[in-house]
């Protein structure tokens, strides 16, 4: 059984289900559970659902320490950039303890944050910073693109015994989709072919999956068959699914909301170059332009990838046009 659900609600449903399943799961963050009317607070009580001050270093560090000693905290960080004030905890604490202790401890903490809020939030609240995190051994990075994946990947993130950064594109919060009822777990590290195709491979991340699917629909009208792959987790990255598709199509477009050199696309391009050599005929990266995100709408739209840019890129790889650097 499945029901239609909004993306944001699907995340909440997963957290609630996991809290019901495991008393060690706790949930806290800033500006949440502020009154006794809060439904999560009512359900789970003040011990397990908490309001935190604006203290990301402590919030994340406490999550790590609690995870090392037997809890499974989910830390609500709201916006991924807020992690930047506590990046030591994210990059150089959480993923290190297991290794440094020779496997004696584990750190099952989930750091939940929205990202890429392209709705006029300007330079400091609209960014995609997963590139820095996806290359950190010991850390897992999740970026769901549908309500069903949002639910299934949150369940998997909470059950995982490693630190997981769960990043949800803010622009998808109100999107609706079919979500399986009851227990639903999407394994980490498994990409999903959102649309099968034969002419070209499009690999897209987060909000960009929606753009890529819209572009694929338009291309189909022109008899171009695009395969759209959503990695779903950037770490571990399912390289095999991407490479197998590129071996089939020989042409690939990587769509990423992040700026070119701090994108996941650039990492995936490297894997394709190494593993699909001999098969690859053309590759394009459609990323944000190399600017901070501007405030005004036409400026913002200009900088961020969209459906038209994807369509154009697909056509260029099919005609094998060289692109000037």
């Amino acid at each position: 059984m499945a029901r239609e659900m909004m993306y944001g609600d699907a995340i909440a449903a997963a957290i609630i289900a996991e809290m019901q399943r495991d008393p060690n799961v706790i949930f806290y963050g800033q500006n949440m559970a502020m009154t006794e009317r809060d439904p999560m607070l009512k359900k789970f009580g003040k011990e397990r659902v908490r309001i935190a001050p604006i203290s990301e270093t402590a919030e994340i560090g406490i999550g790590i320490g609690a995870a090392m000693t037997g809890l499974r905290p989910v830390v609500e960080l709201w916006m991924s950039e807020f992690m930047l004030v506590a990046f030591d905890q994210v990059i150089n604490e959480a993923p290190r303890f297991r290794y440094m202790s020779g496997g004696q401890v584990s750190v099952p903490v989930v750091l939940k944050a929205g990202y890429g809020f392209c709705a006029g939030w300007a330079g400091q609240h609209s960014n995609c910073i997963y590139h820095t995190m996806m290359g950190i051994p010991g850390l897992k990075v999740v970026v769901p693109s549908t309500p069903a994946d949002a639910k299934g990947l949150m369940a998997a993130a909470i059950r995982d015994n490693n630190p997981v950064v769960y990043l949800h594109p803010y622009m998808l919060t109100l999107d609706k989709g079919e979500v399986p009822d009851g227990e639903y777990v999407v394994p980490l590290g498994v990409a999903d072919i959102k649309r099968p195709g034969t002419d070209v491979t499009i690999v897209a991340i987060g909000w960009m999956v929606k753009k890529a699917l819209a572009a694929a629909e338009r291309l189909a009208e022109e008899n171009i068959s695009a395969e759209v792959i959503d990695p779903r987790t950037l770490a571990p990255l399912d390289v095999a699914t991407v490479v197998n598709s590129v071996r089939k199509t020989g042409r690939v477009v990587l769509v990423d909301q992040a700026p070119r050199h701090s994108s996941a696309a650039v990492v995936i391009a490297g894997e394709i170059a190494e593993h699909a050599v001999g098969f690859l005929r053309a590759l394009r990266m459609v990323t944000a332009l190399d600017t901070p995100i501007p405030y005004s709408e036409p400026l913002e739209n200009y900088v961020v990838p969209n459906e038209e840019k994807v369509v154009e890129a697909v056509k260029s790889v099919l005609t094998h046009k060289a692109v000037a650097a």
Binding site: I26, R48, I62, I64, G65, A66, T69, L71, D88, Q89
Partner: peptide, 19 residues
């Protein structure tokens, strides 16, 4: 990393309180 473990120790105290 100097000082960072103070936060993690505080997290262990959260475990102690919850458990």
């Amino acid at each position: 990393i100097i000082g960072q473990s103070i936060a993690q120790a505080t997290g262990a105290a959260l475990t102690a309180q919850v458990k």
